[in-house]
């Protein structure tokens, strides 16, 4: 198992290196550069150009691309992401300011997805073809197909403007978390419900379930002790992907609800080409995703004896 983990970790490093390189060159391929965002172009054109040229040199953008890439690699792998070109503070500091808020919302969304999605999938499987199953299927399809920014605006209109039950923006109290976390969780909740349902249906048809029933075990024991253990293995994959997704912020949910988290920072940094922040966040998201899936693989092997480390 140790050899397996080491080998997968080394593969992860290669993937991260490729991501870092790809992002660097993709950002360079795009038109413009971060210096142009710091200049007041509505003033005298010549003065603006002069200001731009000074900034371009001061920010190291005049160096050859290969040199910039080398510096970028060195800094990335030594954790020196530099200062935000927009906020003029270390990129790490910006992440530190946002990560708590994003973790709160992401954690709540994850809890909702697991807490509602899995039971709903199990009930659907057990009551296949019933009104409950149809309702759960409809709910899942809606959750997957309604764009989350539109869902967010709809909820703001109903629960914020019309009913005045919930605050519509910001992150001050637990009430502020309700709408963003529901919206952020809806797609994963629906997917989880569908995965659970199909996994459970697959398992419930197995011989060992029939054997357990013929031995006189009660339905709850059969479902909890025998069916769920095997039926929910596929859900682990979803969790592995969801954790880094929530941790990096659900971009448009944070944007609509003005939730001051990592996702909003990421969107604004891309818009303003704040390269140190963009690189840092992309790297962290890549690391979280790669190691999230590594963790899933390990858990798979632990919970499913049919899978062996090789």
């Amino acid at each position: 198992m140790t050899r397996y983990i080491v080998r997968r970790s080394l593969q992860a490093v290669v993937v991260i290196y490729l991501v870092v390189t790809l992002v660097f060159f993709l950002m360079r391929l795009g038109e413009g550069d971060p210096a142009q965002h710091l200049v007041d172009w509505e003033q005298d054109y010549e003065a603006a150009l002069e200001q731009y040229r000074d900034l371009y040199v001061a920010m190291g953008l005049a160096r050859p691309v290969v040199v910039q890439y080398g510096i970028h690699l060195y800094r990335t792998f030594t954790g020196q992401f530099g200062d935000s070109t927009i906020f003029n503070v270390p990129a790490w500091q910006l992440l530190g300011e946002r990560i708590v808020k994003t973790s709160q919302m992401g954690g709540a969304a994850l809890l909702l997805s697991v807490g509602i999605g899995i039971p709903l999938g199990i009930i659907s499987a057990l009551r296949r073809g019933s009104v409950v199953d149809t309702g759960a299927t409809t709910f899942s399809v809606l959750g997957l197909t309604i764009p989350n920014f539109w869902q967010a605006l709809l909820m703001i209109l109903i629960f914020g403007v019309w009913l005045r039950w919930l605050p519509i923006y910001g992150a001050d109290t637990w009430k502020h978390m309700i709408m963003p976390s529901i919206v952020a969780s809806s797609a994963l909740m629906a997917t989880m419900s569908r995965f659970t349902r199909s996994g459970m249906l697959e398992v419930l048809r197995q011989d060992y379930i029939r054997t357990a029933a013929s031995k006189g075990l009660g339905p709850s024991v059969i479902v909890v002790r025998h069916a769920m253990r095997n039926g929910l293995i596929s859900v682990i994959t979803l969790l592995g992907a969801a954790v880094p997704l929530f941790w990096s912020g659900v971009f448009f949910v944070e944007y609509v609800f003005a939730w001051p988290g990592v996702g909003l920072l990421f969107l604004n940094s891309i818009n303003q080409q704040d390269l140190p922040v963009v690189f840092m966040l992309l790297l962290l998201i890549s690391v979280a995703t790669v190691f999230g899936y590594l963790l899933v693989d390990i858990i798979y092997a632990l919970v499913d004896p049919r899978i062996r480390f090789r």
Partner: peptide, 18 residues
């Protein structure tokens, strides 16, 4: 001063008195 990038939410905030 509150940063609310989405126009519809700013307007909703005016309507709710936020």
């Amino acid at each position: 001063f509150h940063q609310v990038p989405e126009t519809a939410v700013r307007v909703a905030g005016l309507q709710t008195g936020d």
